[in-house]
Deep mutational scan, measured.
Amino acid sequence: KKKYVIKVYFEDTGKEVEIEAESKEEALEAAKRLAEELGLKIKKVEIYP
């Protein structure tokens, strides 16, 4: 089964997080949740198959 690796870059902090997920949708949801939890804004998202 294919996994996606999503790199999320946050504004202000210069922080980046990698998330593995089964689908792009799932990964983007996780990225949004994470940003909310951390109180950060997402600057850029890169998706690698």
Rank of each mutant, 00 (worst) to 15 (best):
K2A: 11
E18A: 05
K7Q: 02
E26P: 01
L40T: 03
E37Y: 15
E16S: 10
K2T: 12
E11V: 15
G14E: 08
I42C: 02
K43V: 06
F10G: 01
P49N: 14
K44L: 05
Y9E: 07
E20A: 09
K24P: 05
Y48R: 09
S23F: 07
I19S: 02
I19L: 12
A27S: 03
A21E: 06
K44S: 10
I19F: 08
V45P: 00
G39L: 04
K44W: 07
E20I: 10
L34Y: 11
K3D: 02
E25V: 09
I19G: 01
A30S: 11
R33H: 05
E29D: 10
E46G: 02
E36D: 11
D12R: 15
I6V: 04
P49V: 11
Y48I: 10
A35C: 04
E46M: 12
K15F: 10
K32P: 01
K44V: 05
A27L: 09
K15S: 07
Y4H: 02
K32I: 09
E18W: 08
E36R: 15
G14A: 09
A21G: 08
A30T: 10
L40K: 03
K15G: 05
E37C: 15
E25K: 06
K2Q: 09
E22D: 07
A35I: 03
Y9K: 03
I42G: 00
A30P: 00
A35K: 02
E20Q: 11
S23K: 02
A27W: 03
E25G: 05
K41Y: 12
I6G: 02
I6D: 00
E37S: 15
A30D: 05
K3E: 03
L40H: 04
Y9P: 00
L28Y: 13
E29F: 15
G39E: 06
E37I: 14
A35M: 03
E36F: 15
K43L: 09
V8N: 00
E20M: 10
K44R: 10
E20G: 07
E26S: 10
E46Y: 14
F10M: 02
A27Q: 00
R33A: 03
A31S: 05
L28D: 04
E25I: 07
L40F: 14
L40Q: 04
K7M: 04
I42A: 01
E36M: 14
T13G: 12
E11G: 12
E46T: 09
V5D: 01
Y4T: 02
K43N: 08
L34D: 01
A30V: 11
L28C: 04
K1H: 11
K1R: 15
L38G: 02
L40S: 03
K1A: 07
A35H: 02
L40I: 03
E16G: 09
F10H: 00
S23N: 10
S23L: 03
V45I: 03
I19W: 12
G14I: 13
K15C: 01
R33K: 10
V45R: 01
E29Y: 15
K41A: 08
I47T: 05
G14L: 07
I6N: 00
K7S: 02
G14T: 10
K41D: 03
K3F: 14
A27C: 06
E11Q: 15
L38Y: 12
K3I: 07
K24D: 09
I42V: 05
G14N: 11
E16W: 11
E22Q: 04
P49E: 14
E46N: 06
E16T: 11
A30C: 05
T13H: 09
E36K: 12
R33M: 08
E22L: 06
I47W: 12
S23A: 04
G39H: 08
G39M: 09
V17L: 10
V5W: 14
E22M: 04
F10C: 02
E29K: 13
L28N: 09
V8C: 03
E26F: 15
E11H: 15
K15D: 05
F10V: 01
I19P: 00
E25W: 06
Y4F: 06
K41V: 09
K1P: 14
K7C: 03
V5N: 04
E37N: 10
Y4Q: 02
E46R: 05
E46F: 14
P49K: 12
K32W: 15
P49R: 11
E26Y: 15
V17W: 12
Y9S: 05
E46Q: 07
E11S: 14
S23R: 03
Y48W: 12
E11R: 15
F10L: 03
E26M: 10
I19H: 02
E11L: 15
E36W: 15
V17S: 06
K43W: 15
A35R: 02
V45S: 03
A21D: 02
P49T: 14
D12M: 13
E25T: 07
E16K: 06
E37Q: 15
R33C: 05
E46P: 00
A31E: 00
G39K: 13
R33F: 10
V8Q: 00
P49W: 13
K15N: 14
L40G: 02
K7I: 04
R33T: 05
D12T: 12
V8H: 00
I42T: 01
L28W: 14
R33Q: 03
K1Y: 13
K3P: 12
E29N: 13
E20D: 07
E26I: 06
E37K: 15
I47D: 03
E37V: 14
V45M: 12
K2L: 13
V5A: 09
K2E: 07
V45F: 12
F10W: 11
K3Y: 13
K3S: 13
P49Y: 15
K15P: 08
K24Y: 12
E25D: 13
K7L: 04
K24W: 12
E18M: 09
A31W: 07
P49I: 15
G14F: 15
L28H: 11
E18P: 02
E20P: 07
K1F: 13
A27R: 00
V5G: 03
A31K: 00
A30M: 12
L34A: 05
E20T: 10
A21V: 11
T13C: 02
K1Q: 14
V45H: 04
E18S: 07
K2M: 13
S23G: 04
E29R: 14
Y48A: 07
K32C: 06
R33V: 06
I42F: 03
K1N: 11
K32G: 04
I47V: 09
V17Q: 03
A31P: 01
A31M: 10
F10N: 00
E36V: 14
V45K: 01
L38C: 04
L28V: 12
A27T: 02
K24Q: 10
K43I: 11
E18Y: 04
L34S: 03
L40C: 03
E29V: 13
K43A: 10
K32A: 11
R33Y: 14
K15T: 12
A21L: 07
E26D: 08
A30Y: 15
L34F: 13
T13A: 11
D12N: 10
I42P: 01
E18F: 06
L38Q: 06
L28T: 05
K1M: 15
K1E: 05
D12E: 08
K43S: 05
